[in-house]
Write a protein that binds this DNA or RNA. Sequence first.
DNA 1: TCCTACGATCGACTGAGTCCAAGTCAAGAA
DNA 2: TTCTTGACTTGGACTCAGTCGATCGTAGGA
Lengths: 136, 136
Amino acid sequence: MSDLLERLRGRGWRMTSQRRVVAEVLDGEHVHLTADEVHARAARRLPEISRATVYNTLGELVSLGEVLEVATDGRAKRYDPNAHHPHHHLVCSGCGTIRDVHPTNDPLADLPVEERFGFTVSEAEVTYRGLCPDCA
Amino acid sequence: MSDLLERLRGRGWRMTSQRRVVAEVLDGEHVHLTADEVHARAARRLPEISRATVYNTLGELVSLGEVLEVATDGRAKRYDPNAHHPHHHLVCSGCGTIRDVHPTNDPLADLPVEERFGFTVSEAEVTYRGLCPDCA
DNA sequence: TCCTACGATCGACTGAGTCCAAGTCAAGAA
DNA sequence: TTCTTGACTTGGACTCAGTCGATCGTAGGA
């Protein structure tokens, strides 16, 4: 993740302790935290960090393409730092746990022209649902 | 949609004017209204209908399997009456318009066992994103 | 027609996220 | 090193979607 900090600095991002902490919290595989969870973890290291800053920083990371926003249901969005390795999500209908998964086929190829209604289709996102071992 | 009303009555649903109006609003192809839009349209015919009733009725229709809940982004959920014909969604990143689409392949088959992490996977939902002709 | 359990209503409440005015500070300039 | 400045952060008020619960109303069976 330190290369994330490097990339951000290279893009002219002003490096502040708040931004550094948020970026560090979003480190690892299969990390899918809500904004509130990010805030809670960031606050363990930097107690005075505000919710607004966490939202701002997450929003910037998303628009820079460094983090993905995942809206699995009507509940809080989750943030996925694994943005540079295309993948989809497997969500547990019981507890909401998310795993990154890699299907063998690209669903974009499966949408015939006559089903595109003149849209310029750029992306296909698959959400698999089911029960995790604990909830089954 | 009148067969929907029949089906509901057959299931012992108590028929009230509010429920009838909500069911009638959710009629047609490519209908993807938010709860607030459903409430607004229902209120044109039945001005005193309350938001809570619309939420209750939508929730019941969803749990009866007559209507699908679609959470395309972090915004309000949308309700899709086309629940008896399996399909996926194409969403305009500009204006949020939704179309029902039918890919040629079932993505469930594309998730190998070693990518299921012990989950019992029951459903795969594809969201295609792009720009509609108006927004392009 | 009457009765009553189920459904509708209203308003207060919650949770997620946004906005804004004022204060702070990172980093380039001197 | 110190100064300067505009970008960043803060806290709190606000919005929007949705839920809850007490109370009222009525569909439909007797």
